[in-house]
């Protein structure tokens, strides 16, 4: 998993390298939470969490739960969350579960 702090945009960008599924969601969650606690991220000034999911072809319900939990973590830090996706099927699952009401979803 790759991350970047874009100071000018006050954005923490986290790139997830593939699908987000029940079988890997927990690992992704722990990696991102560890990232939040890292000095580089703690000391950086960011108010947007940008999740790059463009490599994902499927996000299942556990993966959606992870995204919800990351949205909540961002909210706790007074940041907003954005999900960037490229797969129209994933876009539909976001719409079906109304996640688009809570976080901004950008189709790339």
């Amino acid at each position: 998993m790759h991350h970047a702090i874009k100071t000018a945009e006050r954005t923490l960008e986290v790139t997830i390298p593939g699908d987000v599924l029940s079988t890997n969601a927990e690992q992704i969650r722990s990696e991102i939470l560890a990232l939040f606690e890292s000095d580089a991220v703690k000391t950086a000034s960011w108010d947007t969490l940008r999740l790059d999911l463009t490599a994902a072809k499927m996000v299942d319900s556990v993966g959606l739960n992870l995204i919800v939990s990351l949205y909540k973590e961002a909210h706790k830090r007074r940041a907003k969350a954005i999900a960037v996706i490229s797969n129209p099927n994933i876009q539909r699952t976001f719409l079906f579960t109304r996640l688009d009401k809570h976080l901004q979803v950008i189709m790339k």
Partner: peptide
């Protein structure tokens, strides 16, 4: 319930019902 709340539970059921 899962659709209306931003809860972690039962999202799979919400997905199924919509798919």
């Amino acid at each position: 319930e899962s659709e209306e709340e931003i809860a972690d539970l039962h999202r799979g059921l919400a997905l199924i019902s919509r798919l």
